[in-house]
Design a protein around this nucleic acid. Structure first.
Lengths: 206, 206
DNA sequence: ACGATAATCTTACCATTGTCAAGTTCCAAG
DNA sequence: CTTGGAACTTGACAATGGTAAGATTATCGT
């Protein structure tokens, strides 16, 4: 049906991206959590075995999807981070939660330990996660240098910050407690609240 | 092989719980996220169609698993909550994160929207989640009454608190950033840190 | 006590899926 | 042009979730 990429070259232009697009399309139709490889192939208009020439197996396809999504999220965060590190902690939170809400399926895959390579192998997913983590850490560090945050291991403080944003995202996506659908201004307000709480919290001295 | 329940009555004692135990056993062998219904039946020593007399389908089995786990977590939280609501906010966090770390598979299932009943149906999973949420809210409320927290919608404040704990749990379980394995005292420290930050944050006035 | 009835479990089957092995088509370089 | 290798297809396999129909056992009214 929906030939995602209309490359008339009948060695089917560039599959791989066509497959990824089809997978994304499937992910968007968030009915269940079953992205089937065969359906992906079907939507890309190729046979069910074609994907194996571009991805080792289903996990590899999903991992590629997760990496793309994680990369995109990283880019958005970096934009905010570069503008004004400290001030935009809230903006980063917004970007994060909004991404999770608009791409829930990909967001879940991004944090699927089973998708990572076996330990030892350099894992792209890990790298991106770390680079995001580094940004958070550098924010804390800057705040400490300018006297905006208490002394302490910035890594540990950043982990709490990330936890709050990440947890909010997860709860809004999957927990049966959040208002459904999410009312206007809700995100803005909650994230603002979180920011205030955390910023204040960063002042604590043992 | 491992007849989880040795009821010699060969109308197989009480399956259902035997099936759930087998499923838990499978969940503990956290190799992949595939708990297969047939394997569950195999471990319980019955045919692959037997489970369908106790659970409508695979989702129902997993939902039952999630409900059991969520109930257990609720119990543990309640224990801490009853002892000393405000003081034990940290204890609640510990209980929460420790549960997530010791039962990662069940924890993930507990927050799987696809496991919930269709909207409208009274959903047991939702009820338990709400009862936990209520406890958090009541803590905030108590703090407000005793002047320990700022005025404001306790629901919104509780959501941030839960987010932090929940996010930390998720990151530790699934994110490729946490130290692996988790060193002694790490949880204790991080959760203490989170508590301090949040408690301080609860003082903020707009 | 006993026979009907319903619950429990089994066997047999189906469509679908992930994966692989072997063939087929097609681009591209010698 | 032909020859090699990449991209794709066809066809198979075992495993899975699910259903239907039959066998077995418990339960209950009489």
């Amino acid at each position: 049906m929906s030939q995602t990429s209309k490359n008339t070259t009948y060695h089917h232009g560039n599959l791989r991206t066509a497959l990824l697009n089809a997978a994304r399309e499937l992910a968007a139709e968030n009915t269940i959590d079953t992205i089937t490889l065969r359906e992906v192939a079907r939507r890309a208009g190729v046979s069910h075995a074609a994907p194996y020439h571009h991805f080792a197996d289903k996990r590899a396809l999903l991992r590629a999807l997760a990496i793309d999504a994680f990369t995109e999220l990283g880019k958005r965060i970096k934009e905010q981070w570069q503008t004004n590190p400290v001030q935009n902690l809230k903006a980063i939170g917004m970007v994060y939660v909004q991404f999770a809400l608009s791409h829930p399926t990909e967001f879940r895959f991004m944090f699927r330990k089973t998708l990572c390579e076996p330990v030892g192998t350099p894992d792209e997913l890990t790298e991106i996660a770390n680079s995001i983590f580094e940004m958070l850490i550098s924010i804390i560090r800057t705040m400490q240098e300018t006297g905006l945050a208490k002394a302490g291991n910035p890594q540990e403080l950043a982990l709490i910050v990330w936890s709050t944003i990440h947890g909010l995202s997860n709860l809004l996506i999957d927990a049966p407690i959040a208002p459904q659908p999410i009312p206007d201004g809700f995100l803005e307000y909650q994230i603002g609240l979180a920011q205030k709480m955390l910023l204040q919290g960063l002042f604590i001295r043992d």
